[in-house]
């Protein structure tokens, strides 16, 4: 037994010694996650010895986690709400990029443009057949995100104007990636995702006749755009500040642009 105990203690010590490398922890929005992962990889190569670890969860969990101190930075893909500022007073939000929300459909839908009010009516369930907006006579399958998702609350703010509610019949998926996968594999479905998640498997619709592109969003023509934030509790430590400075530098903002998001500062 003594030997076993000694072994276990030794193992525990080994594991603990690993725990104190220089590490920045980030949790929150799955919209910010792929961008943050790229920014982390790039920073790790210019700042050896630092690791940045990014986990998902969603915008709300990002704000809560940084507020209660379980991570260094919270990722949030919507504005921090008044309630959240009241709950965690010292929060500092830094806008690292802006992001458009694209309305996506699978390849079998022939519709290419919807007005903002049509999008609203589709998601509230008032329009339930593609033929009502000039498409085939097929029922519309809604794909949405969970309550608490930053993308969903931004979408509700901008498109539904907070007055209406997304229909209860919508298929709910827990992340941007899952929405893309579901829309691309479910015929006649429609969903909404961050620009950064667009790929060839789905079609992004024009809204009010404006194509969902980074240029149009940057020029404020595309109507559905929201900020991407990294939230810190009070002043960031030098370690964290180093990474934030990198993100805001031209090198960092170039990565933002390359990933399909809208930069908020000069790029290289």
């Amino acid at each position: 037994m003594n030997r076993t105990m000694a072994c276990l203690t030794a193992m525990a010590l080994c594991i603990c010694s690993l725990a104190f490398a220089e590490k920045i922890t980030v949790a929150g929005s799955t919209t910010v996650q792929p961008l943050a992962e790229k920014l982390a990889l790039a920073y790790e190569s210019v700042a050896p010895g630092v690791t940045v670890e990014i986990t998902g969860g969603g915008s709300s969990v990002g704000v809560t986690s940084v507020g209660n101190g379980s991570v260094d930075l919270g990722a949030c893909s919507r504005d921090v709400t008044q309630a959240e500022f009241e709950r965690f007073p010292g929060l500092e939000a830094l806008c690292i990029a802006r992001d458009g929300i694209a309305i996506i459909v699978g390849p079998e839908v022939s519709v290419t443009n919807l007005s903002k009010s049509q999008v609203r009516d589709i998601f509230t369930g008032d329009i339930s057949n593609w033929s009502e907006v000039g498409g085939p006579d097929e029922a519309i399958v809604l794909v949405s995100r969970e309550e608490g998702s930053g993308t969903r609350s931004a979408f509700e703010n901008i498109v539904l104007a907070d007055a209406a509610l997304i229909s209860g019949a919508a298929v709910l998926q827990p992340s941007n990636g899952a929405v893309v996968t579901t829309v691309s594999t479910t015929p006649y479905s429609i969903g909404y995702v961050s620009f950064g998640y667009l790929n060839e498997s789905v079609t992004a619709l024009s809204v009010n006749g404006v194509a969902a592109t980074v240029e149009n969003a940057q020029a404020a023509r595309y109507p559905i755009v929201r900020p991407l934030l990294l939230v810190a509790a009070g002043d960031a430590s030098p370690l964290v500040q180093g990474w934030l400075d990198f993100i805001m530098s031209p090198a960092g903002q170039s990565i933002v642009e390359a990933e399909g998001y809208l930069p908020v500062g000069p790029v290289e």
Partner: peptide
């Protein structure tokens, strides 16, 4: 959490 990186510590 679901990070796809190799863990570096028990807090990874």
């Amino acid at each position: 959490g679901g990070s796809c990186r190799t863990p570096t510590s028990i807090f990874s």
